[in-house]
Write a protein that binds this DNA or RNA. Structure first.
Lengths: 175, 175
DNA sequence: CAACTTACTCAACAACCGTTGAGCGAACAA
DNA sequence: TTGTTCGCTCAACGGTTGTTGAGTAAGTTG
């Protein structure tokens, strides 16, 4: 026997989501077409609709797992101030890539950041905890955007732990 | 007499550019349609094409003046470490809003940031000047994105000079 | 085996997009 | 005033997009 039906379905669904994550992360929501996702997954565009209902539904499912990694990022930050600036998962990159132009991605990003800020603020003693925590989060956001999404020349060949080393005193100053 | 022909032309062109800047800054390149710009300017879509050749041409003209203000931002930073975090001009916001999804906006942003980084690096003594300057630029980018584009709750009611005050030691640590 | 379910494809629709060419009316030059 | 220029509108084209309904073949169930 070749493959059970549920297995095939789950497998193609996973393949579609993988292709969607890659394209959303690379091009953002608007510039990613359902046809392109279907093509990358070796599947008919109509099947994508049948699985996820709409392009927006596809985006939500493709991005769903972003939360956990975001928390891990903050844990690294809080625990040792050794910032993890390596490759972010594509689901997180997809949200970041789209958050400035796609309203729902913006909402998702805001929610994630608010969660981060709250957790960081709880670990800061003294006044101004919330704005400080917000700034810490945005510092990491800026560096991540420049490094992962804009791919700036000036940072491309700098190893991640070198970036972390340079950034540590600055983050310390925000605590 | 009502109005000279050149005056009328220049005036409507200015009106179109103003509408374009507002929409590009608010929605980004992809979600801004020529029809919407024309509508906001009280003009026929075809006229926009006639003036700027293409949507891309319109974007370039609408964004052209972004460079000077970017330099002013860095001057404030370098001069007194009093970071100017007030309202950025719409042309700068338009580039930022679009830079993660529109390739040409990304190129424009990269060029602006590279210029900034070079100038900041020249003012930093000691080693690691370039990566440090890059990080300073990205810190400001992150804060600006969170404040102006994402409009985070946690920063909305914090006055700009308060943000500058909190940020100053962190930027100092990167010098 | 037969009846049914379902993952999947094919072809098409309706809407919207950027873009274009023809035409109108008012400012201009003579 | 007469002829010309030109800012501007109108209507439409071709292409792409998200989305849908019918059809097919293969897995499932009895």
């Amino acid at each position: 026997m070749t493959l059970t039906r549920a297995e095939r379905r789950a497998r193609t669904e996973r393949r579609i989501l993988e292709a969607a994550r890659g394209l959303f992360a690379e091009r953002g929501f608007e510039r990613t077409t359902i046809r392109a996702v279907a093509g990358a997954a070796g599947v008919d565009p109509a099947l994508v609709m049948q699985h996820f209902g709409s392009k927006q539904g596809l985006f939500e499912r493709a991005v769903q797992v972003a939360g956990d990694d975001a928390e891990r990022l903050v844990d690294d930050l809080l625990g040792s101030l050794g910032v993890k600036l390596g490759e972010l998962p594509q689901s997180s990159l997809a949200v970041m890539r789209s958050m400035l132009t796609h309203p729902e991605a913006a909402a998702s990003a805001r929610a994630t950041f608010s969660g981060q800020i709250e957790r960081i603020a709880a670990a800061i003693e003294g006044g101004d905890a919330t704005p400080k925590a917000a700034l810490i989060t945005l510092v990491l956001l800026g560096v991540t955007i420049g490094h992962q999404l804009l791919d700036l020349d000036e940072l491309r060949d700098v190893p991640p732990d070198e970036v972390a080393r340079l950034l540590r005193p600055a983050l310390q100053a925000l605590t």
